[in-house]
């Protein structure tokens, strides 16, 4: 590690002004599980580190009036895993409880995973699939953007040097008629080779209105299979069995990772994995209670 000055602000306003004052080299640290690895390797040499772990409003879980779930950016995976959620929010707990390992989950945070924006991580895929809103603050005020706009297509995030991700707002527990997440990794604590999420909303008649199928680990930011998802629209959830599931999965695979560009063994493996995982997710979504 190269020497740095360490700040541990106790409030959000203080953090905003520290970041503004110390300039673009400043790194924010929530749990530090990714940043410390980079610091030790000297891959990051920030002159200033600002810790966000002692800011109470950043690690709170609450509900908005409309039932949206507001999760502070510095909420640890362990907290999310233990939270008593209902509806599709239970998948947030399940995802948070099934990444990295026990000891890392006690320190690692959902906002850290989002800002790290490693496409192999589960958090970016979850955020884009669930169309979460990212609440970003800076000394100039608060604003919120869509998760899809948060991740830059070139990799990384679209956060400015003075910005701090403060909250993640997930849609209400009843929004999705079906939500599924699956991934493949070699060892349980590894980042995923491919991860995928499928979020489905329906109208009053039970017909699918939006089916968002998102993959992580393929490109520098989460990849949305728009055309494959669109094929599900208009179908009744319980009529999934009549759909050409394998065909849709193959289309999704071709859409996010065209086989012509899959020139390495790893890419070809990913392409196959997309089909397998998508087939699983679609079958699950069609099953009763999916």
């Amino acid at each position: 590690m190269t020497p740095f000055t360490y700040f541990q602000p106790a409030g959000l306003e203080e953090a905003f002004s520290l970041v503004a004052e110390h300039g673009p080299g400043t790194r924010l640290m929530a749990g530090g599980q990714s940043l410390l690895l980079a610091l030790k390797e000297r891959l990051a040499r920030p002159p200033t580190v600002v810790s966000l772990s002692r800011i109470p409003e950043l690690s709170a879980i609450s509900y908005a009036e409309d039932g949206s779930l507001e999760v502070g950016a510095a909420t640890t995976y362990a907290q999310l895993q233990k939270a008593a959620f209902t509806g599709w929010h239970r998948h947030i707990s399940a995802i948070a409880g099934n990444l990295a390992d026990r000891s890392v989950r006690s320190m690692g945070t959902i906002g850290g995973g989002a800002c790290q924006a490693d496409p192999r991580y589960d958090v970016p895929t979850l955020l884009v699939a669930s169309a979460a809103r990212m609440v970003i603050g800076s000394i100039d005020g608060m604003r919120s953007i869509d998760a899809a706009a948060f991740f830059s297509p070139a990799g990384g995030t679209t956060l400015g040097p003075r910005d701090i991700l403060c909250r993640i707002v997930f849609p209400p527990a009843g929004v999705f008629a079906s939500f599924g997440f699956d991934k493949f990794r070699f060892r349980v604590f590894d980042a995923a080779v491919v991860n995928a999420a499928l979020a489905v909303t329906t109208d009053e008649a039970g017909r699918i209105t939006i089916a968002r199928l998102v993959f992580g680990g393929i490109a520098a930011c989460p990849s949305v299979a728009g055309a494959a998802g669109a094929r599900l629209c208009g179908v009744q959830l319980n009529e999934f069995a009549s759909l050409p599931v394998a065909d849709i999965a193959a289309q999704a695979s071709e859409e996010v990772l065209p086989i012509a560009t899959a020139t390495t063994r790893h890419r070809q493996f990913q392409s196959e994995l997309i089909k397998t995982i998508t087939t699983g997710l679609l079958t699950q979504a069609g099953a009763p209670g999916g």
């Binding site: 530090g32 640890t76 390992d101 000891s103 890392v104 320190m107």
Partner: peptide
């Protein structure tokens, strides 16, 4: 933060102490 030999309990949670700053 791979091997876990350094795991300790920090405020009730198990953490890998090689991946936490003492100031944290």
């Amino acid at each position: 933060a791979r091997c876990g030999a350094c795991a300790v309990e920090l405020d009730g949670n198990t953490v890998k102490s090689c991946n936490v700053l003492a100031v944290q």
